[in-house]
Structure formats: structure tokens, C-alpha cells
Amino acid sequence: TRVETATETAWISLVTALHLVLGLSAVLGLLLLRWQFPAHYRRLRHALW
């Protein structure tokens, strides 16, 4: 049971790290898009909202 718990903890930390990385890359990508294509971003936002 001790090994299982350790594996579970490792998986949880791995998944958390993955989610953090994905979230950060998504935010960075959005910022980059907004910085590179302001007109396109505004049009996209206008279409979405």
C-alpha cells in the first residue's frame, strides 16, 4: 500500500505540473497572438462576444 500511495502522489504531481505547463503555454500563446495580431484579435473577440 505504501508503494501504491507513492505512485499515486507521483501521478498527481505529474498531472498538476502538466496542467500548469499547459495553462501557462495557453496564456503565453494568447498574449503572443494579441501582441502580434491586434486587429485580428479584436475582430476575433468581437465575433466571440
Rank of each mutant, 00 (worst) to 15 (best):
L18A: 02
L30Q: 01
R43L: 07
H40R: 09
H19N: 02
Y41V: 15
A26G: 11
L32E: 03
R42H: 09
L44N: 02
L44F: 13
R34V: 06
A47P: 06
H40C: 14
L48N: 06
L33T: 05
T7L: 11
V21Y: 03
H46A: 06
Y41D: 03
W49K: 08
A39Q: 14
H40D: 02
T9C: 08
L30G: 11
H19P: 00
V3P: 01
T1C: 11
L33S: 04
H19Q: 02
V3A: 04
G29H: 00
H40G: 13
R43N: 09
G23Q: 04
L20I: 12
L30I: 12
R34I: 07
H46T: 12
E8S: 02
L33Y: 07
W35E: 11
V3M: 05
P38F: 08
P38G: 10
R43E: 07
G29S: 13
R43W: 08
H40M: 11
L30P: 04
L18I: 07
L28P: 01
A17V: 10
E8K: 07
G23T: 13
L20Y: 03
L44C: 10
L32G: 01
F37C: 07
L48F: 07
Y41C: 14
P38K: 15
R45T: 09
A17F: 08
A26W: 08
F37P: 00
L31I: 12
R2C: 10
L18E: 03
L24D: 05
Q36G: 15
H40V: 08
L24N: 00
V21E: 02
S25Q: 08
L31V: 10
R42Q: 15
S13R: 07
R45P: 05
R2A: 12
V15I: 13
P38W: 07
R42E: 11
R45M: 07
H19F: 05
L30V: 10
L20M: 11
W35K: 15
A10R: 10
T16W: 00
I12P: 02
E8L: 05
E4N: 14
A10V: 10
T5S: 02
Y41M: 14
R45G: 04
P38A: 15
P38H: 12
T9M: 13
L24A: 08
T7Q: 11
A26P: 00
S13V: 12
L22N: 01
R45D: 02
T9R: 12
R43T: 11
H19E: 05
H40P: 15
Y41L: 10
W49I: 10
R34N: 04
E8R: 03
G29D: 04
A39K: 13
S13H: 08
R42A: 10
L31C: 15
L31S: 11
S13M: 12
T9F: 11
Y41H: 09
L48P: 01
S13L: 11
L28M: 11
R2W: 12
R2E: 10
G23D: 04
L28W: 06
L22E: 05
L30C: 14
L20Q: 03
A47K: 14
T16C: 11
L32Q: 03
T7R: 10
L33I: 09
L22H: 05
G29F: 11
L22F: 08
A47V: 10
V3N: 03
L44Y: 08
A10M: 09
H19T: 05
W11M: 08
E4C: 08
T7S: 13
R42M: 09
G23L: 14
L22D: 00
W49E: 03
V21H: 00
Q36E: 13
A26I: 09
L28T: 02
R2S: 14
T1Q: 13
L18H: 05
V3Q: 01
A10I: 08
G23N: 06
V21K: 03
R34E: 03
V27D: 01
T9P: 14
E8N: 00
S25Y: 01
V21S: 13
W11D: 03
P38E: 09
F37I: 07
T16E: 04
L33A: 12
H40E: 09
Y41R: 06
L24E: 06
T16I: 14
L28K: 06
Y41W: 15
R42T: 15
L32C: 01
L48A: 07
R2N: 09
L28Q: 02
L28Y: 06
L14C: 05
G23I: 12
V3C: 02
A26F: 14
G29L: 14
T1E: 10
A26L: 13
A39V: 14
A26T: 13
A39E: 15
T7M: 14
T5Q: 00
V27T: 11
H40K: 11
V21M: 10
T7W: 14
R45C: 06
I12D: 00
A39T: 15
V15P: 04
L44S: 03
Q36N: 14
L48W: 06
E8T: 06
L28I: 03
L18W: 10
A6V: 05
T16Y: 04
H40A: 12
I12T: 11
W49R: 00
G23Y: 02
Y41F: 15
L32V: 14
T9E: 08
R43H: 08
I12A: 10
L32W: 07
V27G: 10
Y41G: 06
H40L: 08
F37H: 04
L33C: 15
A47I: 08
A26Q: 01
I12G: 02
E4H: 11
P38L: 09
R34D: 02
V3R: 01
T16S: 11
G23F: 14
I12S: 06
Y41S: 09
T16V: 14
L31R: 04
V15L: 11
L30N: 04
A26C: 13
V15T: 05
W11V: 12
A39P: 06
S25W: 01
Q36P: 07
I12E: 01
L33Q: 05
T1K: 11
L24S: 04
V21L: 12
W11A: 04
W49Y: 04
F37Q: 04
A39Y: 12
V21R: 02
S25R: 04
T1Y: 12
H46Y: 07
L30E: 02
L48Y: 03
A6Q: 13
R2H: 11
Q36C: 06
L14H: 03
G29K: 02
G29I: 11
L48H: 06
G29W: 07
T5P: 00
L44E: 01
V27A: 10
L32D: 03
A10L: 05
L44A: 10
A47H: 10
L14A: 04
H19W: 07
Q36R: 15
L20H: 00
W35T: 15
A39C: 06
L33N: 06
A47F: 10
A17W: 03
L48R: 04
H46Q: 14
P38T: 08
T1F: 10
A17L: 11
H46P: 07
G29Q: 00
I12H: 06
T9V: 13
L20N: 02
R42P: 00
A26K: 05
L14F: 00
H46K: 06
L48G: 02
W11T: 05
G23W: 05
A6D: 05
